[in-house]
């Protein structure tokens, strides 16, 4: 094992000038900007759902939409704040109130709707387009958020990764609600949080975090 004074000498030998990380809120804004661009591109390509104006007049839909947006915003701010060593992990509680509001609107009906949709699919193409929307929003946003969090790979990042998954799920649901006529919140949540759980399981088996892997490849 190298002696501590030698380690210090080695670390101090070439301290290249580093580019300081921007404030978490600024980085959260950049990520939300990317999300807005993605949703706008999808809206241009696919078009907004035809009954959007009518739906927005329904309190249930409007509250659900606002709650998912708020959950996404709070979750991304929370995980970026908590990823810094001098910030409290209590930040991770920030998305819980809007999440509770969002899930309270979800209810049991949505789960059963999703299950019932499978055998009686009137238009399988629409379901495929929904899945494409979820994938096209979730994958780039998820990857971008992991890149933004890569500096935290040595700070016990499991909860940060889970909160990042929640942020992505919330934004993907928002995109889905604006573009498609089906309410697939449960599906999107399961898709995103399932993916995060899968990543965490692989990390546990592999003994190495995805953020560490990303960190080696992007720094």
């Amino acid at each position: 094992m190298i002696e501590t004074p030698e380690l210090i000498a080695a670390l101090a030998a070439a301290p290249a000038k580093v580019r300081r990380l921007h404030a978490p809120v600024l980085r959260a804004c950049a990520w939300l900007g990317l999300a807005a661009v993605l949703v706008a591109v999808l809206a241009l390509e696919h078009g907004l759902r035809p009954d959007l104006a009518a739906q927005l007049r329904k309190p249930h839909f409007a509250i659900s939409l606002a709650a998912s947006l708020l959950t996404g915003v709070c979750a991304v701010i929370a995980c970026l704040q908590a990823s810094l060593p001098d910030r409290s992990r209590a930040w991770l509680l920030l998305p819980l109130p809007p999440l509770a509001l969002w899930l309270s609107g979800l209810g049991y009906g949505c789960l059963t709707d999703w299950v019932m949709m499978e055998p009686n699919m009137e238009d399988p193409g629409e379901t495929l387009r929904c899945l494409t929307t979820v994938a096209v929003t979730s994958l780039p946003l998820g990857l971008a958020l992991l890149v933004l969090l890569r500096h935290a790979e040595r700070l016990r990042p499991t909860l940060l990764t889970l909160t990042a998954g929640l942020a992505v799920a919330a934004i993907a649901t928002l995109a889905l609600s604006l573009l498609h006529s089906i309410d697939a919140t449960a599906m999107v949540l399961l898709f995103n949080l399932g993916t995060v759980t899968l990543i965490l399981a692989i990390e546990w088996i592999w003994g190495r975090s995805a953020l560490a892997w990303l960190s080696r490849r992007t720094v």
Partner: peptide, 12 residues
């Protein structure tokens, strides 16, 4: 110390 070095860009 190694983590401090690796994360030094995160200090404000």
């Amino acid at each position: 110390l190694l983590t401090l070095h690796q994360m030094r860009h995160t200090y404000d």
